[in-house]
Design a protein around this nucleic acid. Sequence first.
DNA 1: CCAAAATTCAACCGATCGGTTGACATTTGA
DNA 2: TCAAATGTCAACCGATCGGTTGAATTTTGG
Lengths: 118, 118
Amino acid sequence: MSAFAAVTDDDRLDLIFHALANRTRRALVARLAKGAAKVTDLAEPFGMSLAAVSKHLIVLENAGIVDRRVSGRVHVCALNTGPLASADEWLTAYGDFWNEKLDNFATFVESGANEAEE
Amino acid sequence: MSAFAAVTDDDRLDLIFHALANRTRRALVARLAKGAAKVTDLAEPFGMSLAAVSKHLIVLENAGIVDRRVSGRVHVCALNTGPLASADEWLTAYGDFWNEKLDNFATFVESGANEAEE
DNA sequence: CCAAAATTCAACCGATCGGTTGACATTTGA
DNA sequence: TCAAATGTCAACCGATCGGTTGAATTTTGG
């Protein structure tokens, strides 16, 4: 609720969905779901430079999906499920009607759907 | 399961999460959750060109989130919740352990967490 | 028949993405 | 003490993003 530089829900969802829109970052999330790990170990399975994985982790961190604890020279990363829950809430808010109005396109098609015609 | 140009789950999730990583497109999804609509009507609330909204709709369509029915010169768009459900499944697969190992970072911190040290 | 409507297409633009490499700062351990 | 380890930073690169404008295409209605 700060007066300046207000961070909106849209800002947060932009960061969260963008962070998840990359398979390397999703793999990092999947890996971290099994437990905390340091950057070097996280980078090992991927065929790319450490710097590249480091940048991916920063993207996840900026989205709030990953927490980091620095102890000495090693950075230990861990999953923060809060933002994942936010994304999940957004999805279910606009998608959980797959019970009531399931497939509104099909119903639209057979109803003649004058609503959308000019 | 075609032999050539196999489309993987990662490919699909890339498209879906990318499509949702933009607030205009999320607003379009929110709008379409209330019912099918034609492109011009969908574009009206946004302060941008029709072509821009058209491109956003194509992104959503390529992700499978939006279906399109062309009747004459109007294109009627409708939500397809399938891909939203896929994204939801991914999220819950890697996030629903917020019951059992809730906040594995906190537990990691106080446990000494030799697992991740070198 | 023909102008207007609906929409995409094509070209362009600056910004961001996802990767690289090399330099840098800090910490560790022998 | 000092080399190796850990990780980020900075600069760079080509590709993609998100928007614009203007032209093209198709369909409609008078």
